[in-house]
């Protein structure tokens, strides 16, 4: 079993090496597409975060004066001053140096607006419905976009693997001749696809690091989003390898 996996790895690597310029080019193109996907995923996260605030039916956003106002309330989240400034800034532009109220997300209950120390309660039903619809719509489009990205990566990988299958016609003919099963013929190309995927992830990481450096490292991409993009690349190339041999 171990020998067999080593064999597949070696063969996959040979396929990569035999046509390394093209393999790199394809990995590079996939990495570029990954950047678009990454940018998209980042804005998805950002928007989700914004829209999440006015979401749940039994929650309300309150503006309060000091911590004592929160006593006895079911607090879901207290926003840090920076967060509030950023949120407001995102919504209405730069707000300068004005003193900001404290903001928290709490569980709704009757009479919340009469609690001492709470200046305002935002629980606008119409707004909430609007936001949650917007969110649903947005996530639906996000899904379509993701599928589109996966499809594009898959098509590129598929074409490249088909090309290498043709370039290895002799090897495949010999494999069939000496009694290799179809699965055995497939796996070297699956590993080849894996190498292409890993290469494009490495190129992507270099690009991300470039971006991070350009922004003086103040711009940090969440690991979750990175992982998602990597999984998309690995998954799409894997599936197209299975389909293309």
């Amino acid at each position: 079993m171990f020998d067999v996996i080593v064999f597949f790895l070696k063969e996959g690597f040979l396929i990569f090496r035999k046509n390394w310029k093209q393999s790199f080019a394809v990995a590079f193109v996939i990495a570029l597409i990954a950047q678009i996907l990454l940018g998209f995923e980042l804005s998805v996260e950002e928007l989700k975060r914004k829209l999440d605030i006015a979401l749940s039916e039994d929650e309300a956003v309150i503006w309060f004066e000091d911590e004592s106002a929160l006593k006895g309330l079911d607090v879901r989240k207290v926003f840090a001053p920076d967060e509030v400034r950023k949120m407001l800034g995102d919504l209405i532009g730069d707000i300068g140096d004005v003193a900001l109220p404290r903001v928290a997300l709490v569980k709704w209950r009757e009479g919340l607006d009469r609690v001492e120390g709470i200046r305002a309660v935002y629980r606008d039903t119409a707004k909430r419905v609007f936001f949650s619809k917007l969110r649903q719509l947005f996530l639906k489009y996000a899904l379509v976009f993701r599928i589109l990205f996966i499809a594009v990566v898959m098509i590129i990988a598929f074409i490249q693997i088909r090309i290498s299958v043709f370039a290895h016609a002799t090897e495949i003919e010999i494999m069939r001749l000496v009694g290799a099963t179809e699965w055995f013929i497939k796996w070297p190309f699956v590993f080849y696809a894996f190498f292409v995927a890993v290469t494009s992830i490495l190129i992507s990481v270099l690009m991300w690091m470039g971006v991070a450096t350009a922004f003086d490292f103040s711009f940090v991409i969440p690991v979750k989003v990175l992982a998602r993009v990597c999984v998309v690349i690995l998954f799409s190339t894997f599936v197209s390898a299975l389909l293309s041999v």
Binding site: D3, I174, M175, V178, G179, A180, F184
Partner: peptide, 27 residues
């Protein structure tokens, strides 16, 4: 002949066994 041109004599012959999943010792 149908040999693989970018593989050595040994590799060409061993290939027939490896693609059938034999262990490297046996190959």
């Amino acid at each position: 002949f149908k040999l693989i041109r970018d593989r050595t004599v040994f590799e060409n012959v061993a290939f027939a066994l490896r693609v059938c999943g034999f262990s490297e010792n046996f190959v």
